[in-house]
Design a protein around this nucleic acid. Structure first.
Lengths: 148, 148
DNA sequence: GACATACATTTGTATATACAAATATTGTTT
DNA sequence: AAACAATATTTGTATATACAAATGTATGTC
């Protein structure tokens, strides 16, 4: 990836600015690739992540606030995100009997099966994304990212 | 930044997945910080970038497609982005006399002045964002990012 | 010059997201 | 128990973005 070429500039940027632009460019690319991998399944990356969180609950229902806590990209509107999954019958939503303010969200078998397929597609995309990195470089990158 | 803590998971993730989640988390943070820095000026990061591109033209007008080429995050709708800047009198837009399909967009003096103020706010935010990095580490990060 | 094609931008529409206010339920105080 | 505050979610509204179709203009070919 050549930063200057992508944004068509010949100017020398301060290293600080260049780094931030670089981060944005990479992230755009990653988003595009992961969203493309999920496109055949008609779910967004956010929806996919919610499904994964629900699977990680192993049958224990999750309510909206815990879902939101565990999401990579926190949303202001998890209700409507779950609505989308509900419409696809990937999850069920019930009022929590012990505390009727809460809702209990569970992944369905249909959701689990679909998720397994998505997993494969996403794992493939992920491997492709990091194909130029070796283990050491990935660790180095993680260490550097921690400085943000 | 502790990835596991932020998404409240105790599970050990594969390094590849962890890296991508890490990238997303950092990028969310960077977006938040830069958008916050621009909030007092009532412009989005996208609008700010368009203004910077226009300034870089040094009086030479830019049309929509060149704007789009040079944007860090390519938008499908630069027309409406420019509309927002137009409404604030930060730019002017005219039909190109030599080729009436094109438009010529220029930054106004009001836009330039506002941009100078935004620059300060953003430079401050940028410095704060990279404050834990030294020059060598920034270079290392840029090298690693190129592998994506 | 009529016709098809390519180009640059605009518009329409659907979906996504941010933010604030509204609703419903529970817990606490007096 | 009435009043108030706290919690969890939902709804309303404004804005952002993606994608496709429509519009207007220019260019090349017969």
């Amino acid at each position: 990836m050549n930063v200057e070429e992508i944004i068509k500039t010949s100017k020398k940027m301060p290293l600080e600015s260049r780094t931030l632009i670089h981060m944005t460019l990479v992230n755009n690319k990653l988003n595009e690739l992961t969203n493309n991998a999920l496109k055949p399944f008609d779910v967004s990356l956010q929806q996919f992540n919610v499904l994964r969180i629900l699977r990680g609950q192993h049958g224990k229902p999750a309510n909206l606030s815990t879902l939101n806590d565990r999401m990579v990209t926190k949303m202001s509107n998890t209700t409507r995100l779950v609505d989308k999954l509900l419409a696809k019958d990937y999850v069920v939503r019930n009022v929590c009997p012990s505390n009727r303010r809460k809702v209990e969200i569970l992944i369905t078998e249909k959701g689990s099966n679909a998720l397994s397929e998505m997993d494969k597609a996403l794992a493939e995309a992920e491997n492709d994304i990091v194909k130029n990195f070796n283990k050491e470089e990935l660790e180095q990158l993680n260490t550097l990212l921690d400085k943000f």
